[in-house]
Nucleic acid binder design. Structure first.
Lengths: 212, 212
DNA sequence: AGGTTTGTCAATCACATGATTAATTGACTG
DNA sequence: CAGTCAATTAATCATGTGATTGACAAACCT
């Protein structure tokens, strides 16, 4: 009998960490597809291949699971925009995120509609920390005179983010307007390019290394 | 006793048309706030001040009510963009819609996330009918050489729509970035102006009556 | 090995939800 | 005024839902 002595964590029959992770992944998928109200705890357990009770055991119920998972996603989002990247590319990358982790983008969209106010928003801190950078870049651009004074950088940033998420938030509009499948890799890529084009149109190009 | 003979419809104790309408309005509010899955039939009945059963009586249940109401909203949306209006103003108006009928805009946003495909989309027809105009204007603009060839007019239109809806779809981002209340009339108005500014930045201004 | 803790499961509960049924009330007809 | 139909209500149902309970089994400790 091959009764091994010290099984590697990933081979163990009982691996709480792995189970936790599986539940979180399943939750992201389910919540992403149906939103908080539409998601079913049973469905999450099934997706994860575990017993439903474990959701309560590890996260204290549906709400706790939602919080844990959304927080995890907010943190993951922080690494999304490397500081040095030119804005058009940064935006294109964000638009492409709909391809890399559709569930994450969808969750982000749901959370916007569910948002009720600054209070009871557990992810407020992570979010504002993550979003500061983009606005700063726009402010610099404006200070350099490359953006009209009438532009409010924060608003512009928000509008561009909304634009990037359109394949997720407005698929019905896209389908009705172009006939294309808003979620197909081909279209998302095309759309991401168009976001970059828009950014360039506004004049967010990286300037050639300073003439004066 | 003032037993009047022909009471005006709105004074009658029993007025099916009025009841129908009250239910539809209540439904818009409830569905707008919580989305389809989150909305409660009981809450709709209470808002409307009628018995819950009437929802089934008039609309055949929650789903029927949702369909009826969303269709009504799609139709109402058609009158939103008068043909002659310059694009920047048209966009500003759309952004201001978050003030005039928040429920309508929110419903539109929910429907995007719930959207599963061209099939089982009852409002497809109305939507595409309503959206055609904007893209045409952009195409003309492009044909006139006032918009780079690399721009895909349909995508641009979608991105601008998404931007207009940002006070509704990304309130958490707005709050975290500006500290302002994303739903306050003051901010929505400011944001709508910024949308117009963006439109002008892209060059969607109405051209002064042709020089050549 | 024996006992304790921790991870997992099956079975079940209490409750909210959407729907149904049947009764009631008001309006219109002849 | 009786009778009929439409509008509205109250009471109840079947079911899906998230949560709980208690058994039990694998790992850990000595």
């Amino acid at each position: 009998m091959p009764a091994r002595r010290s099984p590697e964590p990933h081979e163990r029959q009982r691996d709480p960490e792995r189970t936790r992770q599986r539940i979180l992944e399943a939750a992201a998928a389910e919540f992403g597809e149906h939103g908080y109200a539409g998601a079913r705890t049973r469905a999450i357990a099934e997706r994860a291949g575990v017993n439903q009770q474990l959701v309560s055991y590890y996260f204290g119920g549906k709400e706790g699971l939602y919080r844990a998972m959304s927080q995890q996603w907010e943190q993951r989002r922080e690494g999304l925009a490397p500081p040095g990247t030119p804005l058009p590319d940064q935006l294109r990358n964000f638009a492409l995120e709909a391809l890399r982790s559709p569930a994450g983008v969808r969750m982000f969209a749901w959370s916007g509609l569910q948002w009720t106010g600054p209070d009871d928003d557990p992810d407020r801190a992570e979010r504002s920390r993550m979003l500061g950078g983009g606005v700063d870049q726009l402010r610099e651009l404006q200070a350099a005179g490359r953006l009209p004074a009438e532009v409010d950088p924060a608003c512009l940033q928000v509008m561009l983010m909304a634009a990037c998420m359109a394949t997720t938030t407005l698929p019905h509009v896209i389908e009705g307007l172009t006939g294309a499948d808003p979620r197909s890799p081909a279209f998302v890529a095309h759309f991401a390019d168009q976001v970059a084009v828009l950014a360039r149109l506004i004049g967010l190009d990286p300037q050639e290394p300073q003439t004066s």
